[in-house]
Each structure stands twice: as C-alpha cells, then as structure tokens.
Amino acid sequence: MKTMNWFLAGACTFLLFTACSNPPPAETDPAPKAKKTAIRVENTSKEDSLAAAERARLEAERLAAEKLEADRARLEEMINQLMSDDVYFEFDRFELTEKARELLAQVGDMLKAEERFIVTVEGHTDARGTEDYNMTLGGKRAMKVKEFLVAYGISSDRMETVSYGKEKPKVEGASEDAYSQNRRANFRVKIK
C-alpha cells in the first residue's frame, strides 16, 4: 500500500514538473510586473499595447495550465483506478476468473487510452504455505495477468511482472476473508 502511495506521489510530482517546465506558468514571478508599472509613468501609449499583449499571453497560459491541470487530474484518476483494480484468485490457483477477465478488459482499455502508462504487475498470495512456493505462485499470477493484457493488445514492453509471494498482504490476519483479499495481482503505474 505504502509503495503504491509512493508511486502515486511520484506520478503526481512528475506531472506537476512537466506542467511547470513547459510553458512557464503565468503566476511564477511577480517581479517583472512591478517593473512594468514603473515604466507606465513614462510611456502610457506604448504601455497600453504592451498590457494588451501581456493580458493575452497570460490568458493563453492560464488556459494551457488549466488544460494541463485537467489532464493531470484525469491521469491521476486513471492511475488511482488502475492501482485499485486488484485481480483476485482462488487458493493455490493462478487461472483468471470470469470477474478477473472483465476487470482486466477495463484495465486494458485504460492502457490503450493512455499510451504513456507503463505498469508493473505484482503477484501476491495469501499467508498460507511457505515463502518459497508462494514466490513461484505470485510469479505465475502476475504472468497470467500480463498474458491476458498482451492478448488484449497491450505491448508487452509496457508491462513488467514481479512476485511478492506472501510478503506484502493487503489485509493482515488469518481469516478466510483476509486470505481471499490477499490472493491477488495489482498494478503499479509509471508514466513514460
């Protein structure tokens, strides 16, 4: 869960960074504005046209920033959606259930819609059994998910698989409920 949040945070900062760097946002530096007001006293007619140009530029930048902001929010929502899309499995099995296929189809659509996404598929198991065997099982689960998405038309270059075995449970505890929520595959998202 922690790592997911980190990734989300990473993705957000990345987006903010792109938003900041190109083009430069409107309200970054108040100093030039102050300079302009000083000039106004000397040459008002020139200042009028300058101010108009400045206003237009600011307006364009505001729109661009808004668009970026909207884009960022949309991406963030998509990432959130992807990271909460857990695929569940039966005990000691790695076949995809009907429900899992439906969910993965949605994930596939999202990955098609946003080409910049690169995902890591994490395979997990419940707490029963040995560390070693559960590592192999987690590997098989992650691979099944990747195989489905490749068949759905997502390039395998955009997906990496990793097994966490039983080491990263979503829910602590030794109940069937906890077990069933931990037998899962989930996604980590990076932006290219």
Partner: peptide, 9 residues
C-alpha cells in the same frame, strides 16, 4: 537458487 522468468520459476 530460483529465478522467475516469464512467470515460470
């Protein structure tokens, strides 16, 4: 040791 590659160990 074990290595996982393409889902197989």
């Amino acid at each position: 040791f074990s290595v996982i590659r393409d889902g197989k160990t």
